[in-house]
Design a protein around this nucleic acid. Structure first.
Lengths: 351, 351
DNA sequence: ATCACTTGTGGGAGCGCTCCCACAGTACCT
DNA sequence: AGGTACTGTGGGAGCGCTCCCACAAGTGAT
């Protein structure tokens, strides 16, 4: 029944106090040096830094968090049932950007899954406990209560993909409207006349914007918009199959399909093949996301690339700025609270 | 120049003390209830729980961490340059299992990237600061100093994929040897005679085990092992292309290829196509990982599925057990410190 | 009746830091 | 000479918890 381990024993990790003693200064001064305060003389700073190095001092995060009421951590909240989300390359790319942006800072990244009800409840606890300084929200649906909860708790948050045109949270998104236009204009440029669209989930704002882009591109090119050429999908492969089948039934004369995701396009491709349509000879196909699937599809899929990695980077930048500012939740210049990044069409053999 | 916000103000989040006052008990008693100590009478427990509910009390993590010298957090360390790693479905699946296992606990998940030197240095600081209770190590190379560092700091750690047969850390892995055998036996069963192997990175233990499995399967079937049929890859697509080209040059008569990853197989497939070989008619192709790419390849790729999600789950279970045990770093039963999970061959049109 | 445990409880001490007030020292005005 | 301001510094108080000691009350043996 021996007691509690190395707790409190000397020989453990050095504390601020010990560094102070070693450097022959007070506790406050060491704290100032550690935190980069300018109000320290050069000589003192050097002495403290030497002591820190000699002792191998590393600040105790918990103590700092308790005293300063901040955590130096942000959370990336994944509200999807994990299954859906991870299958997409979206996540990996986003994480890459987030990681890159974070590696310049002292911030830690917490990954929080909020798919199931139990997980969401735990998340609510985390947030209530202010266990993180800020939150990154990805892939949120229109009716998700999470954003409002964050606003109420006054926790800085940045969302990828606004829930609507009236999004109140700071958001970073790619230009879904412009991306869709690029895709459709490309198809028109290739001489396609009857261009169908398989949409994403209709409760996702970005999917709506892609529909808008699709319509406007057709209109401006002088094509009429036939609603029989638009079929709802859900970003999934199965959805792509179902939608493609419906479209072929309604408009067997179609000669191009713009799908709201690469996975959707993969589903559509299967149905087109089975129906004996050649790609791109009979039907041109364009996807969205420029995922690994697009490169490996047969034929390789033309796709709209979103700068997801950069989006992750920008989200972090904005979030850290909000965390740092803290005070003015309203007053700040509202200019760049809604960032929209350009997309790029990657042309491959499918169109 | 107003001062520091809501610090210390009443109306903030309730503390243990306030809950105690409300329930008419002492601080210690509330702490006991919160932490599920059995040494509390039922009546008192009920009173405290009521107070907790009424006040919406949530424990302050930082204070708890400081007082108890634990963090209730574990880190998932990704030592690869992020680029490589995330491209693989491996990561997503692993994360899914980890997330699932974690959602039953109070533990948080920290994601730490340790690709660049700066990141590695930060990681060392984290660990030195004991910012996490345990560490999950994925995808570690043979010469990585990380595991030893963890051992020295006495931080519980579990590694996915042992670095060698003599791995000292607790590890969870899939049966690379058996998986390779499955693949090769399958090809032999299909009547293939001249089966090549494109290996993974040779400094990865799992890749070595796959080579062993490949060789043994051939031997036991009475085939001779021709080293001209083995070419080193590196798990990447480019590596697959290079290796395939080399193999075709050396042994143009080959009629099957077992690639150490799906991505490698994708590279090999391109070269085979360009060389005019039909899959599977002329050359059968089998990959490893059963990733999304396998399903979407043309033809769909036969592949060895690893239960990566389950691996993530098991890793967490083992890690939490180590964290909970704490004391006996040596004495514990050593039986299941090296867990190996079975693989499964997913047959598709490529073989 | 006394002793020896056990069970449940209260509250002091202390975890390692940040914040801030106090104050010595110096510089520059009136 | 006195005032005012600023710079650099030390250290008290306190963040919200856990750990543990002390102790009251109950239980059963002697």
């Amino acid at each position: 029944m021996a007691s509690h381990g190395a707790r409190g024993r000397s020989g453990g990790r050095p504390t601020l106090e010990e560094v102070a003693a070693r450097a022959g200064v007070g506790r406050g001064t060491v704290s100032r040096v550690i935190n980069g305060s300018p109000r320290v003389s050069d000589a003192t700073r050097a002495a403290v830094e030497a002591a820190v190095a000699e002792l191998g001092y590393v600040p105790n995060t918990a103590a700092r968090a308790l005293a300063a009421n901040r955590t130096d951590a942000i959370a990336l909240v994944v509200p999807e049932p994990e299954t859906r989300f991870f299958a997409e390359p979206y996540f990996s790319d986003m994480l890459r950007g987030v990681g890159a942006a974070l590696s310049d800072t002292q911030m830690q990244l917490l990954l929080i899954f909020a798919g199931s009800d139990r997980e969401r409840q735990r998340l609510a606890q985390y947030l209530a406990a202010h266990r993180v300084d800020g939150v990154l929200l990805v892939s949120v649906h229109a009716d998700d209560p999470l954003p409002d909860m964050l606003a109420q708790l006054e926790i800085p948050a940045v969302i990828s993909g606004p829930r609507s045109a009236a999004e109140t949270l700071t958001s970073v998104d790619s230009d879904n409207y412009g991306g869709a236009r690029q895709a459709v204009e490309h198809l028109i440029g290739r001489g396609r006349r009857t261009i169908a669209h398989i949409t994403g989930r209709l409760d996702v704002y970005g999917a709506q914007r892609r529909i808008d882009g699709y319509r406007d591109a057709l209109r401006e090119a002088g094509h009429e918009v036939d609603e029989l050429l638009v079929e709802a999908g859900d970003f999934s492969e199965g959805g792509g199959r179902r939608a493609m089948a419906a479209l072929l039934e309604r408009r067997p004369d179609l000669d191009a399909v713009f799908a709201a995701s690469d996975v959707t396009a993969a589903g559509a491709r299967q149905v087109l093949r089975e129906a004996g349509r050649r790609i791109p000879d009979d039907v041109a196909l364009v996807g969205y996301d420029d995922s690994a699937i697009a490169r490996h599809m047969d034929p390789p899929l033309t796709s709209v690339r979103q700068p997801i990695e950069e989006m992750g980077h920008r989200m972090i930048d904005l979030l850290l700025a909000e965390v740092a500012d803290r005070r003015p939740p309203v007053s700040r210049e509202l200019d760049r609270r809604q960032v929209v990044l350009a997309t790029e069409l990657v042309e491959r053999a499918s169109s």
